[in-house]
Amino acid sequence: MTTDAPGPLSRAENKLERALETAQEQVRRLICDHPAQIPIFTAAGRWHFDEDAWAPPWTGGFLAGMVWIFAERTNDPWWTLQAQKYSELLEPRKLDEGTHDIGFLFTPSWGRWHRLHPSDHTRDVIIQAGRTMARRFNGAGKYLPTWVDPGSTFIDVMMNVDIVFQAAELSGDAALADIARQHAMTTRRFLVRGDGSTAHEGWFDPDSGEFLRTATHQGFRSDSCWARGQAWAIYGFGSVYARTRDERFLDTARRCADFYIEQTGRRRIPANDWNDPAPEFPYEASAASIAAAAMLQLSSLAGPQGSRYREYAAGILERLCTPEFLGSWEQGYEGILKHAIYHRNNNLGVDESVMWGDHYFVEAVHRMTQGLGKAAGG
């Protein structure tokens, strides 16, 4: 006797497709209700549009990136038009020397635009953005500094070196690729610990290049492991390996992913910092969405061992697709992914939606439904 009832895989796929439909509806409402505005996080479930009290504006690439994903999936001209509009809003930032987040701005937006519809213009924008990012390079310490201080670098910066690599490939300028590689090597040496955990911030003497200490802004303390920073490391080192094929970066990405898995286990969704003995909130869902996207990328890079990361990412997404984490307009909630944290120590976007959490959730679900993770910006 045969049956038309879907098997477990089909049910899982249907759950992911429904989550993407919800995400599309949430983003469509954001665009229609707040045209040309780029939020950072929600407050009581509603998008918050005030100026970022912590960092120079850095979230526009995530909104544009989601819209490009919807344009790719649907072939709907409306989504393509919106993706172009929101990417064009960011174009002046290709010359912005006041932030280390150039990659966050341009890789999801113009990077996807160039992959889907390459042109001289998209190429030139990416090259200029990468050159702007590379100009931050401190040759003495061999690192890309943050906006905080010339002696500071974050684990987050690993997510911003891919735009430099892409600019190098598009322009043929090998010096750009060398800057990106040197920063990754410095981060690997000083911000990744022997157990695969990561420090949030490294401080250097900007004149001599001497490494001084680690610190944190958003984690529990300087020697702890902030969950979102760990997810940035998995993704960032995987992207560098995809560009360079240097096995040291694949090893680092795997060790960082293994630490995430060992610390989080069946919960799948970590708190803000694994070393906090009494976290006020049990979840930092944006760390989980980034980790899911990162592990799907890693699964496509790690050979036979990649199945472990794909299976764990699938478990993360299965949990994030439940009503506990997935927001909807019917619930009076404007974001996509609930229970994320922007900056606990500054009380910004705590137990809310955040734009990058939504973006990497959409990216991970998109990758999973396609059957595999593309490297670097897919």
Results as ranks from 00 to 15, higher is better:
218 Q>D: 04
126 I>R: 03
212 L>V: 11
366 H>S: 14
291 A>R: 04
368 M>Y: 11
237 F>P: 05
227 A>W: 01
190 F>N: 10
24 Q>K: 15
208 S>E: 08
132 T>W: 02
336 I>R: 00
100 H>W: 06
55 A>W: 13
47 W>L: 03
151 G>E: 01
214 T>A: 12
275 N>C: 14
254 R>Q: 15
294 A>G: 09
129 A>Y: 00
193 R>E: 08
6 P>Q: 10
200 H>S: 05
26 Q>I: 09
157 V>E: 01
357 G>E: 03
131 R>H: 11
165 F>G: 02
150 P>D: 09
150 P>A: 06
67 V>Y: 05
300 S>W: 01
85 K>T: 14
194 G>N: 13
37 Q>N: 13
39 P>T: 06
299 S>V: 01
173 D>L: 09
2 T>A: 14
127 I>K: 07
164 V>P: 03
19 A>C: 11
176 L>F: 03
137 F>Q: 02
140 A>E: 09
253 A>G: 08
285 A>G: 07
90 L>I: 07
133 M>C: 15
310 R>F: 08
221 R>F: 10
104 F>W: 14
274 W>P: 00
28 R>W: 14
207 D>W: 11
249 F>D: 05
264 T>F: 07
220 F>W: 10
292 A>C: 02
280 E>G: 15
37 Q>P: 08
108 P>K: 04
304 P>V: 02
116 L>F: 05
159 M>R: 11
206 P>Q: 05
136 R>E: 04
69 I>M: 10
81 L>W: 12
235 Y>S: 07
5 A>W: 11
157 V>I: 13
312 Y>L: 00
34 H>K: 11
247 E>D: 15
161 V>F: 02
327 G>D: 13
76 D>A: 07
223 D>H: 13
323 P>M: 09
97 E>G: 14
337 L>F: 03
160 N>T: 05
254 R>Y: 09
63 L>P: 01
53 A>F: 09
83 A>I: 08
303 G>K: 06
7 G>D: 13
313 A>W: 07
8 P>F: 06
2 T>K: 15
97 E>R: 15
319 R>N: 07
349 G>T: 02
103 G>I: 02
320 L>Y: 00
260 Y>L: 04
247 E>R: 15
175 A>R: 14
214 T>Q: 12
210 E>A: 14
269 I>P: 00
285 A>K: 00
113 W>R: 13
100 H>Q: 12
138 N>D: 05
295 M>V: 05
247 E>H: 15
271 A>P: 10
244 T>V: 09
192 V>D: 05
237 F>N: 04
152 S>F: 11
81 L>R: 15
55 A>I: 08
254 R>W: 03
210 E>M: 12
302 A>G: 04
207 D>G: 14
42 T>A: 09
308 R>T: 08
117 H>Q: 15
16 L>W: 13
376 A>G: 09
364 A>G: 10
5 A>G: 06
143 Y>R: 06
254 R>A: 08
318 E>A: 09
370 Q>C: 10
366 H>F: 08
105 L>E: 02
239 S>N: 12
225 C>I: 02
229 G>E: 01
309 Y>V: 04
99 T>A: 05
232 W>F: 11
42 T>P: 07
232 W>T: 00
93 R>G: 11
294 A>W: 00
